[in-house]
Design a protein around this nucleic acid. Structure first.
Lengths: 141, 141
DNA sequence: CTTGTATAGTTGAGTACGCAAGCAATATAG
DNA sequence: CTATATTGCTTGCGTACTCAACTATACAAG
């Protein structure tokens, strides 16, 4: 219960700030961050979906939006014509670099106000242990 | 980050189970639980909204659905013609009693698998301290 | 009484997803 | 090789919200 309330309040606040300062939703930001950390700033769409816990269709539409804004570009794969990569553009790289910074500040502000650094670590550790269900592939005998 | 992932995975799983077993969304469940705990199983719509962190319009539509299912009923307020109460029906009371039980079992299963009881308390305590932003009214000078 | 101003609730338009169905390319079996 | 399954991605449709605008009541000040 606490979990739900805390999440709703935090995402609402952080999302609003992200939107106001950079015109990005949390999901947009999340995807851009993934690309930012990826080798060559390039990822397959499926892999993005798994990382950010959206479905494939969600990613398609989300990337459509980011493409229209010029933050990512499509690239096809020479060895497998099914896959298409998403690549961060220079514009996108600039964007996420800015946003990352201010977003971290926001997070620090909200969490820092209530939790000591040690508590934050504790929280992170506990959350890390929770079951990220869809990753469970090895359950089948 | 962990927070987002953990929340997405958990709500997806719990939501799916609720949906499958009782035909309720998490929000539906949340609202019914609030009414369940309220005196006379009755609340003003605005107060429900604040509790479950939805907007007023969200509540209107959500309650529309629950009314159509016969789980809640409207009641007008004699002393203030603006407010309308939502009341849990007998049917609704039965429903939430069932769902509450199986939902608790689901929660126990998911959390219990990874966290010791003491850790669960710790987690709850930490989450309770996070800022539930919209409650902050006293910020204005 | 009249004229704000705040509050409770609803409604219309728009958005961000998910699900199921589909298509195209690849992998595997016969 | 053909036939079937699997994978990556997109599309149509539905749903659960939000926001902004609206109505109706309440209350307060002139």
């Amino acid at each position: 219960m606490r979990f739900l309330r805390a999440h709703a309040a935090l995402t609402r606040e952080l999302g609003a700030r992200l939107e106001a300062e950079h015109g990005l939703t949390m999901s947009d930001f999340d995807v851009l961050i993934q690309l930012y950390h990826a080798p060559d700033h390039t990822m397959r769409r499926v892999d993005i979906a798994r990382q950010v816990l959206l479905t494939a269709s969600g990613i398609t539409r989300l990337l459509d939006g980011l493409e229209r804004c010029g933050f990512v570009a499509k690239k096809s794969c020479p060895s497998d014509a099914r896959v298409s990569y998403a690549v961060l553009t220079d514009e996108g790289l600039r964007k996420i670099t800015e946003a990352r910074c201010s977003h971290h500040a926001d997070v620090d502000e909200l969490f820092g106000a209530v939790l000591a650094p040690k508590e934050r670590e504790q929280l992170a550790e506990l959350l890390a242990r929770l079951p990220l269900a869809p990753t469970a592939k090895e359950c089948s005998e």
